[in-house]
Every structure is written in structure tokens, then in C-alpha cells.
Design a protein around this nucleic acid. Sequence first.
DNA 1: CACTTGACCTGTCCGC
DNA 2: TGCGGACAGGTCAAGT
Length: 297
Amino acid sequence: MPELPEVETVRSGLQRLLPGQQIKAVHFDWPKSFPNANADVNAFVISAKVTEVKRRAKVLLIELSTNYSLVVHLKMTGQMVYRGSRERFGAGHPNDSLIGELPDKSTRVTIDFSDGSQLFFNDQRKFGWVRLLPTPEVMNLDFFKKVGPEPLSAEFTWQIMRDRMLRRKGSNIKAVLLDQTVLAGVGNIYADESLWGAKIHPSTLTGSLTDKQFKTLYKELTTVLRLAIEKGGSTDKNYVTAEGKRGSYLSFAKVFRREKLPCPRCDTTIEKLRVAGRGTHVCPFCQKAPGKVAPGA
DNA sequence: CACTTGACCTGTCCGC
DNA sequence: TGCGGACAGGTCAAGT
């Protein structure tokens, strides 16, 4: 799972469920999903209690009472699903859950808690990972040293976004939105959605954007990220919340996965193209390709 | 150096 | 139906 709103939704779910839980056992069978699992798991994970669940960029940080942290990246298809001691299926009715009984064949890591509840790290494509690190060293990971600011933080302004984006003025704006060193947490869904909102074509050279466009893009991006968090993220195939439920943002999406459907703003048929190596959705009328002038721009 | 492309994996969908 | 190929929400390493 993917982007900031999805990871934030999982974080808030785990933060409701995990603090105070004591870890009894950890199981994993695909070593790449837990590359540095070693004797430290026995020393610093078994018997530890979860103190807090945090997020930075698209990464979950499960902090333990031993001053170690389980650091989790869900990449494309990762899930973190909690099951209470009496729930073989999802909380409430089984139909609420996208997934059935756990563990299943995509389960890579299982954490057992003392009260009988369990936390499952599932990952169909095996790109995601869990790592164990001393909490004070987590931010020394190369990824965290390079990652850009949180787009929803109070300090993040449109001018900061513009200045950081202009470090890559020779790239198209879609590639720059996806660049985690420019700003944290944006992926393919919310890049397309915010570019549609700002009426900017994804192939537009970043260096050619005006201040007015940067300002609009900032507003659209932060608005769409907040809305997606409110809706519990976007579920297409794999993503689920900590309770195993779907997120509902995609029913509010304007262009993502809506190729061949009408643009909600002008009724022009939405097209799917390839930009920055990624499937990209645009309204060809609202978002004029570079060289042409967008309406109202 | 700045930027783009392939690789990491499994599963699904689409065309022949 | 079967089978090959393209594609899927992310990030690195290696390439141009």
C-alpha cells in the first residue's frame, strides 16, 4: 500500500489497537521481508510492549518499550492487519473485510501478542519489508536522510514546495511529485488527482510552471491528501486498513482509474497515458499538453 | 550531474 | 480454455 493517506490510515488504526500490547512471538518465513531479523528479535522484541505507532513519509514506525522500533514499508501490496483474540475474520461481519482468515498465503510476518491477538504483515509482491532498529537510529536510514518534508505539516508552504520542486526543473511535474526526496508521501494516485485539480498536464516541464500554478498545485495536493485520509485511503486491490477494511477515496477520484469515463469538470473523456514510466490519467481538455495553454491558466 | 530505465515479485486481465 | 505479454499504488541501482 501505497501512499501517504493509506499509510496514515493504517497508522491511526494501529495506534488505536496496539499501544500496551505485549509481544509474545514473531514468525516470518520470507527473509527478504524481514532482512535484519536476528538475535535482536529475542532480546528487544519478545516481551516488549508497543508504546506508539508513528509515520514518516510512507513508512510505519512501531515503537517498543525496549527503545527499539519495527520499521515497516508496505511498498505496492503490503498490508498490516490486526486481529483480536476472538476474531478469525475481520472485525464485525466477515464481509466488511477484503481478506479472510489469517495467516494466508501472502502473510510474511506474524506478531503474536500476549492476549491472543495478532498482527499480520501481508505482502503479495514481496517488495515491502519490516526492519528492527534502535529507535534513535531509525532516522539514520538512507531513505529518511534523503526524504523531503511532510506535505501536511504546518511548516510546509507552497513556496517551500516550489523551491524544492525547482531543483528538478528539467523533469516533468509528475516525476517530481513522485520523487520522495522533493516531498514525502505522494504516489501515483494522488499525483494524478492533484494535477487534475490544478489543471496541469503531467508532462509539463517543472521549470516552466508559474508561481500561480505552484500555488494551485499546493492547494489541490494538500486538499486531496486530507480528503483521502478522511475517506480511509484508496482501495483498488490490496490496500486495507488495520481492521482489514476498504478505503473509499476511489469513489471520489476525479481521474485515477477513470479512463474512458467523462471528466467531472467538463465531460471530456479521460485518457490514460504513460508519463515518468507510470500509468497516468488526464483530462485532455482541462490539462493541456505542454506547448498548449490550459483554459484559465 | 540530472534524468530515465530496469529490477525486485506475484497475480490478474486482455488479446490471440 | 490456454498462453504470452502488459500491467499494478514504490523505491533502488544501474544506465544514458
